[in-house]
Write a protein that binds this DNA or RNA. Structure first.
Lengths: 168, 168
DNA sequence: TATTGTTATACTCTATAACTATA
DNA sequence: TATAGTTATAGAGTATAACAATA
């Protein structure tokens, strides 16, 4: 039933190979942009709806200080707007500005067009299969890493970045 | 035919999601190790056979100065051995030391066991399908990125990191 | 006490530019 | 001239620790 050791070892290599090539493609694609890959990731999740910084950090799998810095950068660039959470004086709510929504749209259009071009010899079915498999792999890693990292009791304050990746 | 825009856009998200979760899992798994993820990658390729630094940089998709630093680190840790290339006075050949081979084996055993555990509810077939799809995706990105980055003539000296990823 | 968020500091990984030595 | 490799420097992205304010 389980996965054979040789297959697991091979899969580790395939995962790291993809990491490398994606890093290279992303670096080439976004060279000279004002908004780096990390900030683009933040924009994506802010674009899904006004959120607390804590929630964003969880979804992105980064620590709170990192997200704080990213939000400050995006605010300085005029892409996000912060306001006090009316229900909690400690918390803020972060949302896209009109310029941020525009920026996000342009980023996504560019990425999508690039990938379409790179996969020009793929079938629609290939792409759908790949999306499904990547989702499955990410979910398995996410859930297992969480389960593994949280053996007993642990508070949000003591959680490390690897434990922050949100369940859904 | 081609891939639909919506599917391509979704696939971009799935790829970045995987990047994030792999980063988190890797960081958690190798916390406190003396040899970081980048050095582990170098060890892997050195382990495939004695190589020139230039070749290693190509395979890893990093620039020459980065690889030079990594090799120096690994040599200091006693994991690799350098010698002059007898056929080319400018070049060096890098190989694993016995300690490096041992280290590489331990790293791979640990990674494999971790992934096996994380994918404990997967079938052998799931894993094989995933390895196949990841390979296909990496190859498509690699080839397209190279083709895109090398429109006309360009020498190795002017190549950027994204152009360095080796064909095979 | 616990949580939200910030600042300070440091680490990892990477790149470009400038250089030496060899081909 | 071109290539192999190194050193110096800088930048992006991340983490931990220490802190202030609020719940």
């Amino acid at each position: 039933m389980a996965v054979a050791p040789d297959t697991a070892a091979d899969l580790v290599y395939r995962i790291f190979d993809l990491q490398r090539v994606v890093r290279c493609v992303a670096a080439a694609s976004f060279r000279g942009q004002d908004t780096g890959v990390a900030l683009q990731g933040v924009l994506r999740f802010v674009g899904e709806g006004e959120s607390r910084a804590t929630q964003l950090a969880e979804r992105l799998g980064v620590s709170a200080p990192v997200l704080s810095r990213h939000i400050a950068d995006l605010e300085e660039q005029g892409y996000v707007i912060r306001r006090q959470d009316p229900d909690d004086g400690r918390a803020q709510l972060v949302a896209l500005s009109p310029a941020g929504a525009d920026k996000l749209r342009k980023i996504e259009e560019h990425r999508t067009a690039t990938l379409q071009e790179y996969l020009s010899d793929w079938s629609q079915e290939d792409a759908e299969d790949t999306a499904r498999i990547l989702t499955k792999l990410s979910e398995s890693l996410k859930h297992s890493a969480r389960a593994h990292a949280l053996p007993a009791h642990s508070t949000a304050a003591s959680a490390t970045a690897s434990q922050n990746l949100q369940e859904h």
